[in-house]
Design a protein around this nucleic acid. Structure first.
Lengths: 173, 173
DNA sequence: TCTAATGTAAAGCGATCGTTTTACATTGTG
DNA sequence: CACAATGTAAAACGATCGCTTTACATTAGA
């Protein structure tokens, strides 16, 4: 694997688990197994590295969300949480931590959420056979809610969201 | 008002808007309009101050959530977001920022969420006339989802959650 | 008016931040 | 063997962190 990509993966893990601000560059050099000089050659700066981390996570997340039904959406979400742990949305956390004052982070979060909203609308439309923006927004809220309730309720939050989504899809559409 | 309480309120505003870690004590002294010596007399330490901030917010939030119907719950949430802004749950953000490694913060968040879960179950039970734990978990997910989707969708996320909750309450129970 | 308390302003504490630099070891290539 | 290139280890940069201390002003009660 490319060294820069490996660094990005390591940085994602540390930023995700310990927070962006709380993760120092010395800890990154140690975890990445390279000197700070080499690290900065690949990373550029901390915020530039964070930008690459967010872009990589967006790609990976969106790829895993390439499904055609609402039920599959929650199935994928459950898998994701079981594998990655439940700490809430990494993008929203990163945005909140920096108070929205870091342009690179704010832009990456905004782009990711816009793509995510669009994806949820597509999935709902594919599942129903026709558009339903209002229903799609409800599903969006359920996905976001499952993600964050799972922090303190575990994967059962995803089950609750999934069954609620099934009822809403059945009742409407 | 008591000086310590005023300091707690100021700290809550800064921690909430800019993040706990990103908010320095010098910024707090400036915003609180007192010298750092006096501030530390009232605050003790940064983490102790944060503990008091979380406790105060829990009290205020729980008091505002003293309602007897699911619809009123979302009405209160909408008011809260309009007044306070949408930055996601302050407790979950504080926990994530510190990676769960700060005992005072982790304990305060855990206590708040336990009380909140209990409250949602009570509201659903009062609304239905009988307990329904599964339905209450769905409503919990919708509240959490509205809180976090509102960060990038605005108050319309609360409307979507409210209508979804109404459908679920009608269909089940 | 003397005194003790309580405040402010500001310097300073050691530690850590993100980042750069210096000095040296290890490479693959001609 | 010579030679760039690329890496490491570690010191050092100025800035800022949470927190304490010093020196001085203000005030209220005896």
């Amino acid at each position: 694997m490319d060294k820069t990509d490996a660094l990005t993966l390591t940085a994602e893990r540390l930023f995700d688990q310990n927070g962006y601000t709380a993760t120092g560059m010395d800890r990154l050099t140690q975890a990445a197994g390279m000197s700070s000089r080499t690290l900065y050659k690949h990373a550029g700066s901390k915020v530039a590295l964070m930008g690459r981390v967010l872009a990589a996570r967006d790609r990976r997340f969106m790829q895993s969300m390439d499904v055609a039904s609402v039920d599959a959406l929650f199935s994928v979400l459950e898998d994701w949480i079981c594998k990655e742990g439940a700490r809430g949305c990494f993008f929203l956390r990163s945005l909140a931590e920096t108070g929205g004052d870091t342009p690179e982070i704010a832009a990456a979060v905004s782009a990711h959420k816009a793509a995510f909203v669009e994806r949820v609308h597509q999935i709902v439309a594919a599942d129903l056979g026709h558009d339903d923006p209002a229903l799609a927004e409800q599903i969006l809220v359920l996905v976001e809610g499952a993600t964050h309730a799972a922090v303190y309720r575990g994967v059962t939050a995803v089950s609750a969201a999934r069954s609620a989504a099934a009822m809403l899809m059945k009742a409407q559409g």
